[in-house]
């Protein structure tokens, strides 16, 4: 992106600072989206301040930036939307988590999605616990009644673990199903 050159050094600093803030706000986006967004903002500033007499440069630039708004606020919907697009395009869990964090203010559905993703992560922890503490992790029943699915420190008498070696494959299956369902739900939300 070509930097705009101002005659007035103070105007130059204001412009450079604003561009730095924009760059910071869009750093989560893909390289192409970052370049495109930055070029568009830069083009807007250039068109609005072009041919401003040096004595009015600061005034015109400040007016332009004020109308554009604080990058942290005005670019939030754009970053959230583009991140959601990237997440649904790539199915990458990192992008999905970032997109959820950015979109969480857009509705309770995203909060639920975030909860389900946390559940997936806790399932992952359960696998590790099953390897380290096999007798304390599993599907526990007592007198034909469900007691717990997960990890327990206390192994009371009469408590039996049902899944045994099948626990890890079952948890992997559950994680896969949850991840797949969440990503599909995420796509549906994005379409709305």
């Amino acid at each position: 992106m070509k930097r705009i050159i101002f005659t007035n050094p103070a105007a130059q600093k204001i412009y450079d600072d604003y561009i730095k803030r924009v760059t910071r706000c869009i750093r989560l986006l893909s390289a192409d989206d970052q370049r495109d967004t930055l070029m568009e903002i830069n083009s807007h500033i250039y068109e609005a301040t072009n041919a401003a007499p040096p004595e009015n440069e600061i005034e015109i630039l400040l007016g332009t930036l004020e109308k554009l708004g604080a990058p942290e606020e005005v670019l939030q919907p754009l970053v959230a939307y583009k991140k959601a697009q990237q997440a649904t395009r790539t199915f990458n869990p990192v992008h999905i988590l970032q997109a959820m964090r950015l979109n969480i203010a857009n509705g309770a559905a995203y909060v639920i999605l975030a909860f389900f993703y946390l559940l997936s992560v806790s399932f992952c922890i359960l696998i590790i616990l099953k390897i380290v503490y096999p007798s304390h992790t599993g599907l526990f029943m007592q007198n034909d009644k469900f007691v717990a699915f997960g990890f327990t420190t206390e192994l009371r008498g009469g408590l039996t673990e049902l899944l045994g070696q099948l626990f890890i494959p079952v948890v992997i299956l559950l994680m896969g199903a949850l991840y797949f369902l969440n990503t599909l739900l995420f796509r549906l939300l994005k379409k709305e």
Partner: peptide, 8 residues
């Protein structure tokens, strides 16, 4: 129109 909102 808040100009910044136009681009999103």
């Amino acid at each position: 129109v808040a100009e910044g909102t136009l681009y999103p």
